[in-house]
Design a protein around this nucleic acid. Structure first.
Lengths: 345, 345
DNA sequence: CGCGATTGTGAAATCGTTTTCTTGCCCCCG
DNA sequence: CGGGGGCAAGAAAACGATTTCACAATCGCG
């Protein structure tokens, strides 16, 4: 027992199930008396429509659940993005279900199947490296609006929300150059992700503009996880001539770098200057407070939510890309001279 | 275009839809020849069963999606728990969809409706303060197995996974007492949550054991968010006789406390000693490295996942409560004398 | 060789809604 | 007074899968 069906409500109220449905969905053509009886019956029995049956009948179009597939839930960046999406969704009476692929294409495929199976009303996804965009395209063709988050698809035309990674990285590295550094290492991001490529490009642009030659031995490729930042920093510091400054392409790797330097008893910024990509709420309480390229993470989520909301009504408008700007927050780790009352928030 | 149904597959293969269903679900009584034809047709058309229809027919019992409702996605504690749940689920071929209630009973109710509507195979939830446990009980009666996470329901009998909060807080405060402190402030957790009550109890127990009288002016009630830790710390420090030690009942509030003390130019631990509840991956890189009661967050998630898995087959076994132990990690913020090679991980 | 048991297959019922179709009733106007 | 037009409400179809039921055909065994 447990579930009560529309039939039982109808029987209880002495009407047909069609009438019950009409009342509950606010159809105009129902007499006040029957409406009252139905509502009463519905309340008395504690009726909750079976949404599975409902969606089967209606089709995907009206699901008020949107899926949000992120690639690393342990990254505070995505958490903040999620909050942005949630707030926009909640304001529009939509529910958000979140799935975490852990940067694994296999898990991503699994969750895409879930999304398709549940016939969500829309989907926001930050694709895992090595994603099968054709698969995403298939979902879209089956009528699920899709917005890409943070990472572009190269040869497909999806709605996308991202930041200007090239410029962000450029600012970070230029900042180090202005402070007099010329041997600046890069701990780069995951191969195959547009963010990694873009941040690498920003790094190169900054060096090039300053007339500094690229030194391959100072360029490491990580995977956006803390452990790789840790390990690659150890590697860098074992070079015959270690760098005096490091630009790390994301926040988690920066934490690894910080830990490695701390364990090596290397002082930041005196011995090595450090700038990270992507700020965190506690970056100012780290030791030392971290200079970082802040992304408008929450806005990113909001924009993605809004874009999806716009897309849900008309499925086949032209795809659109929204690019938000980053901002360099200068704290102590880069070694810049700070004003006397530092406002690390 | 769009979705291909089982009927189309049947037509393409020249069989009935019943046969297609049997093949795809691995029924034994199908001839090899037809099986082959059906599989071929299914592949050719790229058939993906409509799970909505499937679940309508089958009933809730076989959904391979479990819901995980957490109350604050911005808290790293829950993130780690989520990872634990996910790993157990994934190893058992289950998908996890995550919902964040933001400590709001209204949002929680919304997501409970979603879970019911989607007929998830099971549900793990850390209830928001002021939760309607009767509602949860209703879900359970409708056949959805439920495991409570981190927080108990007081007058209902649910499967529960939690840590020994009383003992954890007791250790933290006792540690401060051993270091010579007697004026120890408490920044407590959200009213109405068992974790807040338990940690408060541990605080009292420790003081009592040491023969220290409770000083109400040193006891503040927060809401487990960073902002309240920040504000309450400012309040404490404006007392005529401020505390020389603070025990903060969760990690986010501790970050707020740290920020407040930093802005007030109060040195930790020289001026004020600090112990937090719940460690974070970067607690060792904070300024100063944080002494904290570490919860086995990942294990907590795993246990919750396992408990749910055990519960899903037999719905009405007796409810079970699993209590895990905490561990005090001593770093610099409490002012303890550390070994020369500190191993802050 | 005959008859019951077994097996493979299709037709049809089913899950719980929504929506279309149909029907009966009332109202209004010529 | 008769007939067309609305309109409220029930009957039935539809959504897309699974599963029961019915029905041949084949098999096995005496």
């Amino acid at each position: 027992m447990g579930t009560v069906t529309i039939q039982e409500v109808a029987a209880y109220a002495g009407v047909s199930s069609a009438t019950v449905s009409r009342v509950l969905n606010g159809h105009p053509r129902v007499s006040a008396e029957l409406r009252e009886r139905v509502l009463e019956a519905s309340r008395a029995l504690g009726y909750q429509p079976n949404r599975v049956a409902r969606r089967l009948r209606i089709g995907s179009s009206t699901s008020d659940v949107v899926g949000l597939i992120i690639s690393d839930i342990e990254n505070p960046f995505f958490i903040s993005v999620v909050r942005g999406v949630e707030d926009v969704a909640y304001a529009n009476r939509l529910s958000v279900v979140l799935c975490n692929t852990d940067e694994s294409p296999a898990k991503q495929q699994m969750y895409l199947n879930v999304m398709l199976a549940e016939r969500v009303g829309g989907l926001i996804i930050s694709p895992a490296p090595g994603s099968d965009y054709q698969e995403l395209d298939r979902l879209r063709q089956k009528g699920i609006p899709i917005v890409l988050l943070d990472r572009r698809a190269e040869r497909y035309d999806f709605d996308t929300v991202q930041v200007d990674n090239v410029h962000g990285a450029f600012m970070a590295v230029s900042h180090l150059i202005e402070l007099g550094h010329r041997r600046i290492a890069l701990i780069g991001g995951t191969a195959g992700l547009t963010t990694a490529r873009d941040r690498y490009e920003g790094y190169r642009n900054a060096l090039e503009k300053a007339g500094i030659a690229l030194d391959k031995s100072l360029i490491k490729q990580g995977d956006y996880k803390k452990a790789s930042g840790y390990q690659l920093t150890l590697d860098l510091m074992q070079l015959r001539e270690p760098p005096r400054a490091i630009f790390v392409a994301n926040n988690l790797m920066t934490l690894g770098t910080l830990q490695a330097l701390q364990e090596l008893r290397i002082r930041v910024p005196q011995d090595v200057a450090l700038v990270g990509f992507d700020d965190m709420p506690w970056s100012g309480q780290l030791c030392p407070p971290l200079t970082a390229v802040a992304q408008p993470t929450y806005d990113l989520g909001q924009e993605a939510g809004r874009l999806l909301l716009r897309r849900m009504p008309d499925r086949d408008a032209a795809a659109q890309t929204i690019v938000l700007q980053t901002r360099l927050i200068i704290r102590e780790s880069s070694g810049a001279r700070l004003d006397k009352e530092p406002r690390h928030e």
